[in-house]
């Protein structure tokens, strides 16, 4: 991998962006990607309608306190809370599962279809291709999260009143600032998916079957989520990638509690570094026989 000499030729630093653009366009044109996004967009609608029906004939159910579902009780007072609720509902499974599909298929799918060999003799360069695939997966993380947030915002605005936002700590902020916080939360949720995207990419670099890579990634996600709920494993839980996921709620406090948020982002960066390196080590030395 003597990438350095490439600079000696006509300097074309933007060519990797061309490949990235091709990759992103291709990913978002696939029916599978659109279907995943449609499902994600449907979740807030379902939650919103359910809440509307549930509270139409009685008082708000469920107590306040901590955790994602807590937001549900707020939704009827302020549609903006549907954004927080929907992100809290989709973050444990729906979002990472769709990331697992995209990341798992990224390299293994190309290997399975044989297009990987043509990309590599083009030559895309193994390191560059890996980076482009990871960047595309991260783009999908952001887009998927924003799809959930926007769908929730629209549904919330249609079904419930909007207005000042009462934070978890009791203080009120304007609707505009509430929107900003919602955007910040969406970004944090997207960043929370960096780890699972790296794991998916690594698994994808191991195999030539897109389906196997997707299934393994999603299976691993479910396993880790279950492990994260077993109290006897509390010693290892801080190192599991979903452990701090719901810390995004701390952005709804005044002042914001940064501790868990930082731990979450640090953990995601660690996963990206470890599994990204492992994927690189594997992919750059692998025999492409498919």
């Amino acid at each position: 991998m003597s990438q350095a000499e490439g600079v000696l030729r006509r300097p074309r630093p933007l060519w990797s962006l061309g490949l990235l653009r091709s990759e992103i366009t291709m990913t978002f044109r696939r029916w599978r990607t659109l279907a995943l996004l449609a499902v994600l967009a449907g979740v807030p609608v379902l939650v919103g309608i359910a809440v509307k029906i549930e509270t139409g004939d009685g008082g708000p159910g469920g107590g306040g306190g901590q955790g994602g579902p807590a937001f549900i009780s707020q939704v009827t007072h302020n549609g903006l809370f549907l954004v927080f609720t929907s992100l809290a509902v989709t973050l444990p499974f729906f979002l990472p599962m769709s990331i697992g599909v995209i990341a798992g298929d990224s390299l293994a799918g190309e290997a399975h279809g044989g297009t990987l060999r043509y990309l590599l003799v083009a030559p895309a360069g193994r390191t560059r291709l890996l980076l482009v695939k990871y960047a595309t997966t991260l783009t999908f993380c952001l887009v998927a999260t924003l799809v959930v947030a926007l769908s929730a915002l629209v549904t919330g605005a249609l079904l419930f009143p909007l207005g000042e936002v009462t934070l978890l700590s009791g203080t009120s902020i304007s609707f505009g600032e509430g929107l900003l916080r919602a955007l910040a939360i969406a970004v944090v949720v997207a960043l929370s998916l960096i780890g699972v995207a790296a794991v998916g990419l690594f698994i994808s670099a191991l195999t030539s079957s897109g389906i196997a890579a997707m299934a393994t990634t999603v299976g691993l996600l479910i396993t880790v989520q279950i492990l994260d709920t077993i109290p006897q494993l509390s010693a290892v839980q801080p190192y599991l990638f979903p452990h701090y996921w719901l810390s995004f709620a701390d952005l709804l406090r005044d002042p914001v509690y940064w501790d868990q948020l930082q731990k979450n982002l640090g953990l995601q960066a660690l996963y990206a570094a470890v599994f990204g390196s492992a994927a690189w080590a594997r992919f750059t030395t692998r025999d492409i026989t498919a």
Binding site: G6, R9, S16, G18, S22, A122, A124
Partner: peptide, 12 residues
């Protein structure tokens, strides 16, 4: 177009 985009020397 996809395969051409993967070629670092190809002029877009």
């Amino acid at each position: 177009r996809r395969f051409d985009a993967a070629d670092p020397d190809a002029d877009p």
